[in-house]
Each structure stands twice: as C-alpha cells, then as structure tokens.
Amino acid sequence: MAQNILQVENVKKYFKVGKKDLKAVDGVSFALEKHKSLGIVGESGSGKSTLARLILGLIPPTEGDVYLLGKSIFKASKNEVKQLRREIQMVFQNPYLSLFPHMTIGSNIEEPLRLHNIGTKKTRKSIVLNLMEQVGVPPQYYNSFPHELSGGQQQRVAIARALALEPQLIVFDEPVSSLDVSIQAQILNLLLELKRKTDLSYIFIAHDLAVVEYVSDLIAVMYLGVFVEFASTEELLNEPLHPYTQTLLKSVPVIGGEIRDITISGEIPSPINPPSGCPFHPRCPYKKEICEIEKPILKEVKPEHNVACHLY
C-alpha cells in the first residue's frame, strides 16, 4: 500500500438523467505504483473522462473512494485537499480551452505556484522559464497569449503548468487527440522524456490504442464504465484475452499487413440502458448463455494480467 501512489477502490459515478441513472463509471478498482504509467483506452462514452475527474477529486463519486498517497481525497479536510492537489495534476484534451485566456503564457504557468504561495515573484519567473525550456516552449512566448500559439505549443504550456507544482502523478485526458499526428508524436516523446528524467507517474487516457501503448507500462481497457482488461503493455499486446481487446487490436492498422476482418459490429450501448450481464455481450462473437445473466468480475488469470470475461 505504501508504494502505491494511487489506489482506486470500487468507484462508481452515476449521473441522474430524468429518473434513470447514467452509469458513467460502474465500479473500477486499481492501484498504481510509483513511477509507473498507466494507459486507459476506450471508446467515447466508456467513462474514461469521468474516471479521470473522479481520480482528481473534481467530482464526488456515487460510491467507492480514491486514495492518493494513502489519503482519501474525498474525506480529507480542506487543508489536506490543498496539499494533495500539489501531488496530482491534470492535462486536458483541449489546451486552448483549459489555459486561462486572459493571462499570458508566463502567468498561466506561474498560476499554480501563486495559488500555493510558492516562491517570490522573481524566483517564480525563473521557475516558469525553466519549465518552458523543459517542455520546449521558446522563452519569447513568455508574454504571448494562449490564442497566439499553435495547438501543440498550447499543449506544451498546459503540461508545463501541470508540472509546476512538481506533482507525483499527472492525469492526461486525451492530451493529443486534438492535435496533428506529427505534433502528437512530439508530445508523446516529451512525456517519455519527462518520465525518464523525473520520477513522475502518469495516467494517460486515449481512445487510440496505438498512442497509449507507446507511453504506458500498463494498459487498462475500459468498456461501459468498467475495466474489461488490465495488464502490462507487453502482455496485453501479445496476448489479449478479452474479445473486446482482441477486436481493438485487430482494428489497429499495420503498414504492410493484410486487411483483416473486423469482427466487432454495432456501437457501444447507452450507459443509461446498459445490457444485462456482461456489458459487451451484445457485440461479442463468443457469447455464451451466462454472459447475458451474470456480470463478469475482473480477475487475475495470469500474473499481471486481469480480465473480466466468462471465457476465462
């Protein structure tokens, strides 16, 4: 427990839609060790972003708890929460919307330091310039405004702002999906470099498995608010167990590879009206009788390889 930087225990988040519940996150548990990176993949509507906001403590869970460095972010006192905020940061999908539009790049990166009363005006400026160098934003942008920068540069600034408090964990919520492919690669390399140089842990959320596998030690596959498979990156890529993961992997195009049949059909069901039993059964090619009745739980079938499927 002590070396786990993050412990998520059976968190659920239901949103009220009319009289029904929208089960955005329906019971997720996992632990993340220090200096590890976890990738979470899933289609739109699978609850990835809601899970990210729960981990950050930005929205209260319907059930369950999140422990950061052994402390519950939802049960901590106001002062403790402010301290915990220094240890966990988030980078959002759209950097243009998440940077403060009325502040310069310099002030944007300085803002977390100011909010936590770190350093003097002078030392903060040198911290900011250092951070800008670290993420590869030229210093002449110090006095520019977010709307004057390109999307890639904006995302670098957002990363610098998240790094300013020297957190132990950063949650990236689809940080590259709004960027061009060449810029995506630069940002991903920046993440790998940061992980190599510092003892940062991070959670990387995306809908693109190819992006996630590049930057993650562990991968969790999310479907309708639950983890259906959770394994080390190598394990998951070489031996995907869950039918959903298998189809996901098959859908990743390979240069020079043959065109393969994609066995998945249809769309992700509505989380307001989830299917009974296994959430994946309406689309599963290996559906059995039990799949319609009983919801499979995530269990360890091999070392470092968990799957929620009745086949195993």
């Binding site: 906001r53 950050l56 930005l58 929460v81 402010k82 905020r85 220094r86 940061q89 988030m90 959002f92 999908q93 759209n94 919307l97 998440s98 940077l99 403060f100 539009p101 803002e111 977390p112 909010l115 936590h116 957002a158 702002r161 408090l165």
Partner: peptide, 17 residues
Amino acid sequence: QLEYIEAAKALGASNLT
C-alpha cells in the same frame, strides 16, 4: 462550464478565487 475553470479547480483554487 469552460474547461479552464475545471483546470483551476485541479490546480487547487478555492471557489472565491
């Protein structure tokens, strides 16, 4: 409901701030 308000919360800003 803009994203930078959520970002501010994540940075640890209070409601008044």
